[in-house]
Nucleic acid binder design. Structure first.
Lengths: 338, 338
DNA sequence: ATTTTTTTCGGAAACGTTACCGAAAATTGG
DNA sequence: CCAATTTTCGGTAACGTTTCCGAAAAAAAT
């Protein structure tokens, strides 16, 4: 039923040259005459010949596939990162197998197994929120398969990581709140065990002590990642009659949840409490007041990650795991400025 | 450098059986003794043998890859659809190659070519906003490669389509506005040449005439797809001193743009103008007032699309292109109810 | 016990490439 | 003009499976 594909052998028969010369013509080998190459390529074009990638990959013992595991496909962040990866991988002739761990450690392991089975040339991963044990990843590296982590990563993994300079920008974000006049600032943090969370907490603390602001651990609350998590955290604070004059949330979704609850309880943003988000999302300009946040070069992160993978793939020797830190920008909107 | 993979030949040597029996053991063939199968499988497990997919695919002349082309990866819609597809494809051992056309016709053609080159077993596509000519797709079908379209499709394509019952739900959405008391309703439409747009317009018209409401073509405005497009359309209306008492927007983003501009100009939603969106997005509950909209089983659409592809793949004979219409639900929030 | 049937297996040829090893042809050097 | 070199090419064996064909072994029938 399917139209038969023309192969290198067909070409060989038609052109009366050996299959090896045809292969040579397509692979820019040196030991072929320019005229014969032109002849072959021309005829190939004419007959619509396309090299069969499966055969080539079998012979070369590669798959030209890169496995990508992300915690989720919803939200704007990961799709945008992936979109950045696509740009560089498609240029280099690689294809992406995109899998979601759905924020579950168990599923994450499953996905890794799947990718191993399908013999991808490399694996790119951003950890699920549940992932604490990274032994499997390190075993993976042991077997020789290139691994790159991004955004949600873990210092114990002996692989390159591409991350935002969370420490620096958390510091600057907090500083922004302080300069705007906040004294009693709370930090809504991501799950503590995520390194991304730790780095932002450090930045927050540093800013607070730098300006001699009161800062104890009660002001740093492990909230989660969703909008609902942000709501809950805020609700608990209000029930305890605690209303900060500034909130630095570790994600836009947490920040928006906080704003919603503040407003529902009659507090005004930014007058009563200024709120700062992190990692720009499309939601930031929809909420009222519009959310100040730290924008991140999300697509850039995808590109850098993909480029790192290409480097691993093309290098003969094992590279020392490198950490690339990307810079953001503070986007001031109405939620922090009266 | 890379750890050598154990092959069927290694197993053959170790177990002292032929390669064909091993292959038989793994493929549930009938002509093999239960004990030998068990023996083989056990040893394979022990040595961590995994069939090489490239070799298998070359032999079977398939790739176990499905190409997927979507207009964009940002926004919640397409990632969610893809997430639905993933569920069924990963069950069936297929992998997805996800490519984005970035809403560009030219890029779309490029992507199709890429997928042909990589010899995917089937192609799933949702058209870019620019796509009017679908000859390439029909040629593709001619060559025998299974094609399934979803959401943004085109009646000229001779392939199955999985769509929402846009006509019906546009009708019901408009009806909802009418029942809530609107008389002068405007429809912010997607680009007219998209069939999805046409169907919703028909639904809108039908509802208006059914209730004997005044409805001329000026009330149906080709707006675009983005939030910015929604803002522009609303702005133009207001500049003409036209303020409808109801707006049915063909996407949540258009609706939110409209709401923003209405509010900026001192109009109240829903008191002065009720606004109805279409195709639930995460933005709907962030905007104030929260947006009434037509929710769609987005993930379900992905599943159904993938299942249709599997059917094409597994069927020997060519199937008559079928159209599957999915139902939605009207979600009433504050933007349409006082 | 011999023939017939069925079950179980091994050998070898595919699948479409690339890679290696020579050999023929063309070029150079003396 | 012949030898030495270089360029260009063909033949063939991989890569790791599956599939087909036929043969051996086991079971059933006579």
């Amino acid at each position: 039923m399917r139209a038969k594909h023309i192969t290198i052998k067909d070409l060989s028969r038609i052109l009366n040259v050996s299959v090896s010369t045809i292969s040579r013509a397509f692979n820019d080998k040196s030991d072929i005459r320019k005229e014969t190459r032109k002849l072959v390529l021309q005829k190939a074009m004419e007959l619509g010949y396309r090299p069969n990638p499966m055969a080539r990959n079998l012979q070369k013992q590669i798959s030209k596939n890169i496995g990508i595991i992300v915690p989720e496909l919803i939200g704007s962040f990961f799709p945008l990162v992936i979109s950045g990866m696509e740009e560089v991988f498609s240029m280099k002739g690689y294809q992406m197998l995109i899998l979601s761990s759905y924020e579950s450690f168990e599923k994450e392991l499953e996905r890794i197994k799947t990718l191993e089975d399908s013999m991808v040339d490399g694996i790119i991963i951003s950890l699920s929120r549940e992932t604490k044990n990274v032994d499997v990843l390190n075993q993976l590296i042991q077997t020789g398969i290139p691994l790159v982590t991004f955004n949600r990563t873990n210092p114990d993994i002996k692989a390159p990581r591409i991350i935002f300079d969370d420490y620096k920008w958390a510091l600057l974000a907090t500083e922004h709140l302080i300069i705007e006049g906040c004294n009693n600032i709370y930090h809504f943090a991501l799950p503590f065990h995520l390194s991304i969370s730790k780095r932002r907490i450090e930045g927050f603390k540093k800013a607070m002590t730098k300006y001699c602001k009161h800062c104890n651990d009660l002001q740093i609350i492990e909230s989660g990642i969703s909008l609902e998590d942000g709501r809950k955290t805020m609700q608990i604070l209000i029930e305890q009659s605690i209303v900060p004059d500034g909130i630095f949330a570790s994600s836009d979704r947490l920040a928006i949840g906080a704003i919603q609850v503040l407003k529902e309880n009659g507090y005004k943003v930014p007058e009563d409490c200024r709120v700062m988000g992190f990692s720009e999302s499309t939601l930031a300009t929809i909420i009222e007041p519009q959310l100040s946040t730290v924008t991140q070069p999300t697509k850039e992160m995808g590109k850098k990650t993909a480029e790192m993978m290409i480097r691993l793939l093309e290098s003969e020797v094992a590279l020392e795991p490198e950490t690339i830190k990307l810079n953001g920008k503070i986007k001031v909107r109405q939620s922090t400025r009266v």
